[in-house]
Amino acid sequence: MEFPFYDAPNTAAIICCHIIESKSPILYVSHDEDDGMWQFLCGQVHTTDEAKLVSLRWVFDFDHSVGVLADMPCGYYAQRKNRDDSWTIKKQ
């Protein structure tokens, strides 16, 4: 599947340790307004030390469904209830 994001595949993204270590599904995605950083989280409450840096390509390879969010502008977030749900996008 072709990489859909406008950002380079090696762009740093924040992901929670639950996704990396436990293969938890990505349920919340934020495209931060202040710095353009992408965050991919499992929907739980996190502490700073649970955040990990990976490439945007790693996230896409882990879960291709995030590709539909490639055009989501800075200052917006998307969430879903489970891996099979559709994303709901809202302004932060």
Rank of each mutant, 00 (worst) to 15 (best):
Y76E: 08
T48K: 15
F5S: 03
C74A: 13
M1D: 03
Y77T: 05
D35Q: 03
D35I: 06
T11D: 01
T47M: 09
W58T: 04
A51W: 08
H46D: 02
T48C: 10
I15G: 01
G36V: 13
M1Q: 05
T88E: 15
G67N: 06
W87H: 08
D63Y: 04
D85T: 11
F60N: 02
G67W: 07
C16Y: 06
W58H: 10
G36R: 13
P4A: 03
W58K: 00
S24N: 09
T11N: 00
P9N: 01
M37W: 04
V59K: 07
G36E: 09
E33W: 04
H64S: 11
V54C: 11
F60I: 10
L53N: 12
V59A: 12
A78D: 08
S86V: 06
E21N: 12
V54R: 14
S65P: 07
Y77H: 13
C16K: 05
A78R: 05
T88H: 12
C42P: 10
I19R: 00
D71F: 02
T88Y: 04
P9G: 03
S86L: 12
D49K: 10
T11F: 14
I19F: 05
D84F: 07
L41F: 14
C16M: 05
S86W: 03
P73K: 06
T48E: 15
C74N: 11
E2K: 03
V29G: 01
H31I: 03
E33G: 15
E33A: 15
C16F: 05
M1C: 02
P9F: 04
Q39V: 03
F40C: 11
F60P: 10
G36W: 12
D63I: 07
F3M: 02
V68T: 13
Q79Y: 12
Q92G: 12
S55E: 13
G43D: 08
D61G: 06
G67M: 07
A70T: 07
L27V: 08
H18F: 10
W87Q: 06
Y76P: 02
D84H: 09
L53M: 14
Q39K: 13
T48N: 14
S86N: 13
R83P: 00
S24W: 05
M72D: 07
M72T: 05
S30Y: 06
V68Q: 14
K90P: 00
Y77S: 09
L41H: 09
E21Q: 10
R57W: 07
I26K: 01
F3T: 05
V54N: 02
R57Q: 15
M72N: 08
H31T: 04
V45L: 08
T88I: 13
Y6Q: 12
C16R: 04
L56A: 02
A12P: 15
I26G: 00
A13P: 08
V66E: 04
S30T: 03
L69Q: 04
D84N: 10
I14G: 00
V59Y: 06
P25V: 04
D49V: 09
Q44V: 02
S86E: 14
I19G: 00
